[in-house]
């Protein structure tokens, strides 16, 4: 029993259906479009939403970059690249500027995205209001009515309790003054990169069966208050031990030998380009 898989794994009907949902998502920035998410050869929660977007969009001319928590070589990234490569044979790259499609788990590359590029983000929990409303039926109504007081209240309570907004990654954003959206668990550091980005940003949640999008040049604002502004993670006074970069998201690494903490670029592709003296 030898069976060959179709180009990009899916049958053509499935790809078309996912693209249709994607087009709707682009037309309504920040709105979560339900779609018939397929089971993938990669586990739910391991980027199946992003993977379905990538596979539905990819053509023979595309160049793909996949990153997982900033790294091109992390388990999730390697897995996904292997599957796409095996079912399409397209070119894979580690260099952000070369890629036409960048699939990423929880980071937006340090190198600014260009027009014509597509950034596909993997989303575990697409519903920004889930924190205070467990029911999908209810949150759909809240979005329809643009009733977001709960989201503001959540931030307000954090300020009251901790003295600052204590969101980690996935700090909610307002897209084009209409929908509150979960930017996927990118660090707060990456939120501003979504605002008026030149590339198309697509977000896919496989398990939760939602696709949503931030089209190029769309206003994206992190939720905050006039007298209490949104703050990104701070790496003040720290730089990458390898390439010396500052003003980038850094990984904190403990040196086994010396017991000291040092910092390194989280975006390994970016760091490599700098180390090789190439433009990035």
């Amino acid at each position: 029993m030898k069976i060959n898989y179709n180009f990009a794994f899916f049958d053509e009907g499935s790809k078309r259906e996912i693209r249709r949902a994607t087009l709707k998502a682009i037309a309504i920035p920040g709105y979560q479009v339900p779609f018939a998410s397929r089971e993938m050869p990669i586990a739910r929660g391991w980027g199946t939403g992003g993977l379905q977007l990538t596979l539905s969009l990819i053509g023979k001319e595309d160049v793909l970059k996949v990153i997982d928590q900033g790294s091109d070589e992390s388990v999730n990234a390697v897995n996904i690249k292997k599957l796409v490569k095996a079912t399409t044979g397209i070119t894979i790259t580690g260099i952000t500027t070369e890629a036409t499609i960048i699939q990423s788990r929880h980071r937006i590359p340090e190198t600014p995205l260009k027009e014509g590029q597509i950034l596909v983000l993997q989303v575990p929990l697409p519903e920004p209001l889930r924190y205070y409303e467990p029911s999908e039926y209810e949150t759909k109504k809240l979005h329809a009515e643009k009733e977001y007081s709960g989201a503001w209240l959540m931030l307000f309570e954090q300020i009251m309790n901790y003295g600052h907004m204590s969101t980690g990654a996935d700090h909610p954003v307002m897209v084009h003054d209409r929908y509150v959206m979960a930017p996927s668990p990118i660090p707060r550091f990456d939120n501003p990169k979504m605002n008026c980005a030149k590339a198309l940003i697509l977000l896919g949640a496989g398990r939760e069966k939602k696709i949503y999008a931030v089209p190029p040049y769309t206003r994206v604002r992190s939720l905050d208050f006039e007298d209490f502004l949104f703050e990104a993670e701070s790496f003040q006074g720290k730089s990458c031990r390898q390439c010396g970069a500052t003003g980038v998201y850094l990984d904190e690494i403990l040196d086994d030998a010396t017991g000291k903490t040092f910092y390194q670029c989280n975006d390994t592709g970016f760091c490599m380009q700098r180390l090789n003296g190439k433009p990035c």
Partner: peptide, 16 residues
């Protein structure tokens, strides 16, 4: 799937 995804690295989100 979602339970097993906890085995994936989370160092960006954890740093945050």
């Amino acid at each position: 799937g979602f339970i097993s995804h906890l085995k994936l690295p989370h160092y960006v989100t954890f740093q945050s």
